[in-house]
Simulated scan of single mutants.
Amino acid sequence: MTPVIRLSDVRRDYLTGETVTSALAGVSLIIEPGEFLAIVGPSGSGKSTMMNLIGCLDRPTAGRVEIAGYDTERLDDDALTELRSRAIGFVFQQFQLLPRMSALENVASPLLYQGMSRRAARRLATDVLGDLGLADRLTHDRTMLSGGQQQRVAIARAIVTDPALILADEPTGALDSRSGEMVMEILRGLNDDGRTIVLITHDAEVAAVAGRHVHLRDGKITSDDLVDRAPVATRAATGVRS
């Protein structure tokens, strides 16, 4: 089975004046379909750089990045954008919902970009939002949604195209603890359904939900461990289905 992600001796250097800084220094990593992997490290460890490379938002200085079997070095910018839109669903800390658009329009937007008809896109987006407990929020824009609701809309947008990978960057960072628990319940449920998830976090408690932990420090992997997944804190029933 083709790995979802393969990094082979990847370096990412940045030039500041006459000084070269290595944000990633020869990293190799394989992520298989169905894994829930947390990339953990403090600020400056290289985890954001790794996220940008895995998410096809940046290119390595050296080494090879393969996404869903595609060598990104062989793709021009247009092809890389196409791969990113079809293979990766993003969940960001600050939600990144499109302004002046409803929850339904936000979730339907990647489907329209891929060429789906408006009617079919709205139908599918409605179903996914309903699965995440937002059937009564379809017409609400981001100013009418709580932080937890905005992040659920962002998750719906990430999964609506059925991507090979969900890339979640500090998905609970802007949420209160209760909303954060709900988001992690959803991500764990999606993984239980077979979706591949890569979680970027500095928070060990958030990372505990993942079944594999990769720790970064100074641009290098210091450990790569399979772990027993900790349970998400129990919450009162919310009507949210994974």
Rank of each mutant, 00 (worst) to 15 (best):
T2N: 12
P3A: 05
V4A: 09
S8K: 14
V10W: 06
V10F: 07
E18L: 09
E18I: 03
V20E: 14
S22H: 15
G26Y: 15
V27C: 10
V27G: 05
V27A: 05
I31N: 13
E32L: 14
P33S: 14
G34H: 02
E35A: 08
E35F: 10
F36P: 08
A38Y: 03
V40I: 15
P42S: 13
S45D: 06
G46Q: 11
N52Q: 12
I54L: 11
I54F: 07
C56A: 14
R59G: 08
R59N: 11
P60K: 04
P60I: 05
T61Q: 11
T61N: 13
T61D: 12
A62L: 04
G63K: 10
G63H: 11
V65Q: 02
E66L: 11
A68Y: 12
A68I: 07
E73P: 00
D77I: 01
T81C: 08
T81K: 00
T81D: 07
G89Q: 00
F90M: 09
V91D: 10
F92V: 02
F92H: 03
Q93L: 01
Q96E: 13
Q96C: 05
E105F: 02
N106Y: 08
V107K: 01
A108T: 02
P110Q: 02
L111R: 03
L112Q: 00
Y113T: 07
Q114L: 15
S117Q: 10
R118P: 12
R118Y: 04
R118L: 11
R118D: 08
R119F: 07
L124W: 02
A125H: 06
L129P: 04
G130P: 02
G130T: 01
L134S: 01
L138R: 09
T139W: 00
T139L: 09
L145W: 11
Q149R: 08
Q149I: 03
Q149N: 05
Q150S: 07
Q150N: 04
Q151I: 10
Q151E: 14
V153W: 09
V153G: 04
A156E: 01
A156R: 01
A158K: 03
V160D: 01
A164T: 05
A164M: 05
I166V: 15
L167N: 09
A168E: 10
P171N: 09
G173S: 03
G173Y: 07
A174N: 15
L175H: 03
R178A: 14
V183F: 05
V183N: 06
I186D: 04
L187E: 03
N191L: 06
I197W: 07
I200D: 04
T201G: 10
H202M: 02
A204Q: 13
E205I: 13
A207Q: 02
A208M: 06
A210F: 13
H215P: 00
L216C: 13
R217A: 15
R217K: 14
I221L: 12
I221F: 10
D225A: 15
D228L: 13
R229F: 07
P231Q: 12
V232A: 07
A233N: 13
R235W: 06
A237Q: 11
V240L: 15
V240E: 06
R241N: 08
R241D: 03
S242F: 02
